[in-house]
């Protein structure tokens, strides 16, 4: 199954009250479920095992993202913590309205104390930053929208 379809499903799940989506295509099927309650997500940030991506992890460009994001979305390749700055006393990698080139580092997602630089796969202007600094993020969650 196309990884983009799976990503779209994850986004649909995140934007809805659904707990689970299962899709079958011929012999292939994929089931995506939220683990724990919504309360857990906010309060304690447990990790869902679905964070294990079945394919090499990549931040996946979704040009045809669902309606709520117009523009190109940069998503988290892992479960972790989102950081807008390289260090607390440094300026943010990008601000809304900044021009970015494909390949520019635009944020960091930390997990297991590893600082994972996330690069933009698009050139354009930063339209929105969807996550607060130091907030937990899930696999596939939209971080930044570029137009």
């Amino acid at each position: 199954m196309d990884i983009r379809k799976i990503k779209k499903l994850i986004e649909m799940l995140q934007e809805s009250d659904l707990r689970e989506i299962e899709v079958k295509e011929g012999e292939e099927s994929v089931r995506i479920a939220r683990g724990g309650s919504i309360e857990h997500f906010q309060a304690q940030h447990p990790i869902q095992m679905r964070a294990e991506s079945p394919t090499p992890v990549k931040s996946i460009p979704v040009e045809d993202a669902p309606s709520s994001f117009s523009g190109n979305t940069v998503c988290s390749p892992i479960v972790g913590t989102f950081y807008r700055k390289p260090a607390p006393n440094k300026p943010a990698f990008v601000e809304i309205g900044d021009k970015v080139k494909a390949g520019d580092v635009i944020c960091i997602v930390e997990a297991m104390k590893m600082m994972n630089e996330i690069k933009s796969e698009f050139s354009g202007v930063v339209k929105s930053i969807e996550v607060d600094d130091a907030a937990p993020v899930e696999f596939g969650q939209v971080l930044i929208v570029i137009e």
Partner: peptide, 19 residues
């Protein structure tokens, strides 16, 4: 876990943490 996250039993429940 096999992703390196920390598993804690808290209030009788297993929880995993990446950060």
């Amino acid at each position: 876990s096999n992703t390196g996250s920390l598993i804690i039993i808290t209030n009788g429940e297993k929880k995993e943490f990446a950060s």
